[in-house]
Structure formats: C-alpha cells, structure tokens
Amino acid sequence: MSLFHAVLWLDHHEAKLFQFDAEHIEAERIRSHTHHTKQHGSAVRSEHEFFADVCDAMKGVTEVLVTGSRTAQTDFRHYLEKHRASQVGQVVGYETVDHPSDKQLVAMARQYFVKHDRMAGVPTPT
C-alpha cells in the first residue's frame, strides 16, 4: 500500500520510513551496508548504497518529511540532489530530532503535515 504522506528518520546506520494516513501506518526499516574493506572510498560507496535503498523505499510517496541528525540529513540531501534529482520534490521539509519513539515520530509528522497542507491550500481531511 502506498500512502500520500511519510516521515523518514535516519542516521548513518539505519533509516525508518513510516507512510501514513489518518487510520493506517506502514513501517519499513532500512539498514546501512557494512563493507569491511581497505579500499579507498568504501565508506562513501556504502553510504551511497544505503541512501539509494532509502530513496527506493520512498518511491511512490508524494510527500516526505525527513528527520534525524543534522549531519545525516545534510548528507542525505546532498545525495538526493546529486544522484536522485527526480525525487528532490518529494521532500517537503527537514526537521532535526534525536531518537523519538516510532509513535512520537508519526505524531510529530501528522502535526507537521496538517500545518504544511493548510499552507499549501490543501483541505485537511476530517
């Protein structure tokens, strides 16, 4: 099931994507790739593979709020702009948060999207 809104929480080791509407929540967890090599740039390559998996999970979602550490958000934004420009428009905002529970994260995202949708002129469902 693909839902209209989603919240993504990420750091450099894992990501959690919650797609939701008023009644439903669909959760997905994405873990980073760990390559233990001495090859130059393997950490960058692993990060790119991780962010590619996150972008693949976001396919079909219209609006995504990206949350997590500021560093992870910045790295993800850079990856998105450079490698997945077609998905940049899916991200409607970035919010720095620590480690909220899954329920807290979805509740925060629901509040965010109510405000976001009102500012965009989208009627709020009742």
Rank of each mutant, 00 (worst) to 15 (best):
V91I: 15
F50M: 02
R70E: 14
Y79W: 05
Q104P: 00
R31A: 13
S101C: 03
T67W: 07
A85M: 11
H78G: 05
P125G: 06
G93F: 03
G41S: 08
E49D: 10
I30K: 02
K82G: 05
A107T: 14
T124P: 00
T34Q: 10
S86A: 13
G60N: 09
L80Y: 02
G68A: 07
H83L: 13
V54E: 06
D56M: 03
V61K: 04
S32D: 08
H5S: 10
H99P: 01
L17R: 01
V61M: 02
D102F: 11
E14Q: 14
F51Q: 04
Q111I: 03
Y112C: 02
Q19F: 05
R84P: 02
A72Q: 03
H83G: 00
Y94S: 05
M1S: 10
T71E: 14
V106A: 00
H116M: 04
M1Q: 09
E63H: 13
D102C: 08
A120G: 00
S2K: 09
H40T: 14
K59T: 01
S42T: 06
V106I: 07
Y94I: 06
A15E: 04
F50L: 04
A52T: 07
P125K: 04
D117P: 00
C55K: 01
V66R: 01
S42W: 06
A52L: 03
Q19T: 05
V122L: 10
K16T: 14
